[in-house]
Design a binder for these strands. Structure first.
Lengths: 228, 228
DNA sequence: GTCGCTTGGTGACAAAGTCACTGAAGCGCC
DNA sequence: GGCGCTTCAGTGACTTTGTCACCAAGCGAC
């Protein structure tokens, strides 16, 4: 139950589609959900687990990833505020096991919904259905995109695209990230990332120091990312 | 519209969940859908397309796959009778583009549902929702499994697992399939499949002739598929 | 038979992953 | 400052996988 008016407002603002639901729906939502706080690194789902609740993220981000036997891993997607791990939803609605890992990348505040409500609201709320399906389709596209990248794209180009994406959102040419972290994002291994970065550095496209990658020639990097 | 009582019965038998829906729902379904026949090789969805209808497969199978720029491809999953391409569903419900290709692997008879009905039935029929979510979750698991295999498993083992799977369902030791077809299933290339098969052949685990692979030592193959 | 198509084989190379090891930077602590 | 620890990065040797170009074997049509 969420009683605090301020918390209620925050929930509505983080999940804008709720504004368009009937008063009664929101009242039921406030009555049925609970607020949880999870620390950094908290494991939310283990590969093969049954999901028992659906978390709607208010603050912080979750990371969903696949882990291989050899210890290598790859990030599939992130769950940001206003989103939810809809793979969980589909597992709840179908009673299947969750096929990956999910972990709190930063401290997370989330509102958890029980399976009974997830199901019921699918029947009673048009908006809820739209919200859930929008997320599912989005995740599917992300995962399909990852598969495409892994299978069909060269690692140096994937790495460049990833770095350029980071520098764009951060509006910074300096990226603070270890080679290991990059390997995890792209599903590669540290050594290979190091080698690729070294190659790019030797061509003067970027510069690396411990924990930092500085993009020197962004136009050239963009070119390189697109070439055959 | 499907009027023919025999066709109606066939539809109900292929999609058993329909038996559990109210009479009124089935009546509406029969009234709103149309039967189509598609020839082998017919392209159903193009990567990036908007989906405009949901096909429920009665006979035949569809194949959903990703195609890389270099021409390599990988099969993501198949759509069998009684199933539907639910990725299409999620695209319809969210208005996103379909992120892969879909093609008729054999001649397909399907019943097509328009987006308006797909949406409406999500609201009106509990059974329909269950059906759709069951399929979505199943596909997600399949695609996640493919990603896992591609990233973390060795090709020889994936190939063996695939071949053993075929020989099991066919209860045959002889598999009629070209190296190219195997490459497409596993997202590899013909040359590599040839090499791996050659290796297995030289170890006496199987024998290859043009278009045919004969599994000679199934226990040894099973062992090999599990080793580190 | 010959022609042409499909299928499979091969060698050389490039890209990526693995393993074992080294070295270097940062940090806390005394 | 110096010491020790941990984290991060670099390297070389090797394996696996993908790519390219080209050739050879099988098979059907005529």
């Amino acid at each position: 139950m969420i009683g605090d008016p301020w918390q209620r407002q925050r929930l509505l603002d983080t999940f804008p589609f709720l504004h368009e639901t009937p008063e009664a729906f929101r009242a039921e939502l406030f009555a049925r959900v609970t607020l949880v706080r999870l620390p950094v690194g908290q494991l939310i789902c283990h590969d093969g687990d049954q999901c028992t609740q659906l978390p709607l993220v208010l603050t912080g981000t979750g990371r969903v990833y696949k882990l291989g036997e050899n210890g290598r891993e790859i990030t599939l997607y992130r769950v940001h505020p206003g989103e939810s791990c809809v793979v969980t939803t589909s597992c709840i609605l179908s009673g299947r096991a969750f096929p990956a890992f999910a972990v709190c990348e930063s401290a997370v505040e989330a509102v958890v919904v029980r399976p009974a409500e997830v199901r019921r609201w699918m029947a009673t709320s048009e908006r809820w259905r739209e919200y859930v399906f929008g997320l599912i389709a989005g995740r599917l596209q992300e995962v399909f995109g990852v598969l495409d990248a892994v299978l069909f794209q060269r690692l140096d180009q994937r790495l460049i695209v990833y770095l350029l994406g980071l520098s764009e959102t951060g509006s910074e040419r300096e990226i603070h990230m270890t080679h290991q972290a990059l390997a995890v994002e792209l599903g590669s291994s540290r050594e290979v990332i190091s080698r690729v970065l070294k190659g790019l550095e030797s061509q003067g496209l970027l510069r690396t120091t411990r924990g930092v990658i500085e993009l020197l020639d962004i136009p050239a990097l963009e070119l390189r990312a697109r070439e055959v």
